[in-house]
Simulated assay, not measured.
Amino acid sequence: MRLDPARDALLVVDLQHDFLPGGALAVPGGDEVVAPIARLAPAFPTVVATQDFHPPGHVSFASAHPGHRPYESLARPQGAQELWPDHCVQGTRGAALHEGLPDRALTLVLRKGTRREVDSYSAFRENAGPDGRRPTTGLAAWLEARGVRRVFVCGLARDFCVRWSALDAAEAGFEACVVDDLTRAVFPERRAEVDAAFARAGVRLVAGRELER
Results as ranks from 00 to 15, higher is better:
211 L>M: 02
172 A>G: 08
99 E>D: 15
177 C>Y: 10
156 L>E: 07
167 L>C: 11
49 A>V: 13
179 V>E: 03
71 Y>M: 14
121 Y>A: 08
105 A>Q: 11
135 P>H: 10
118 V>D: 00
95 A>R: 01
53 F>Q: 12
62 A>V: 10
168 D>Y: 06
142 W>F: 14
157 A>L: 00
142 W>N: 12
186 V>S: 05
82 E>R: 07
208 G>C: 08
11 L>K: 03
186 V>D: 02
1 M>Y: 09
163 R>W: 04
150 R>N: 02
101 L>H: 04
43 A>R: 12
82 E>W: 10
177 C>V: 14
110 L>F: 01
40 L>Q: 02
18 D>R: 01
116 R>E: 13
108 L>H: 06
75 A>R: 11
99 E>G: 14
64 A>R: 11
166 A>H: 11
202 G>R: 05
207 A>H: 14
116 R>I: 15
29 G>D: 12
204 R>G: 06
21 P>V: 10
115 R>P: 00
157 A>C: 11
63 S>G: 15
184 R>L: 05
101 L>M: 04
168 D>H: 09
32 E>I: 08
19 F>L: 14
16 Q>I: 09
131 D>G: 09
158 R>N: 03
157 A>F: 00
133 R>K: 12
174 F>H: 09
111 R>N: 04
192 A>P: 10
209 R>F: 02
181 D>Y: 06
37 I>V: 14
202 G>H: 04
183 T>D: 09
32 E>T: 15
208 G>R: 01
40 L>K: 02
108 L>V: 06
42 P>K: 10
46 T>G: 01
212 E>D: 14
91 G>S: 08
79 G>A: 07
161 C>Y: 01
16 Q>D: 03
120 S>V: 01
190 R>E: 13
165 S>F: 08
48 V>P: 10
25 L>R: 10
132 G>N: 12
49 A>R: 03
153 V>M: 06
22 G>E: 07
121 Y>I: 07
26 A>F: 05
104 R>H: 11
179 V>A: 02
26 A>D: 07
51 Q>D: 09
76 R>G: 00
89 V>H: 00
118 V>E: 08
19 F>K: 06
58 H>W: 01
111 R>L: 03
182 L>C: 10
193 E>S: 13
65 H>A: 10
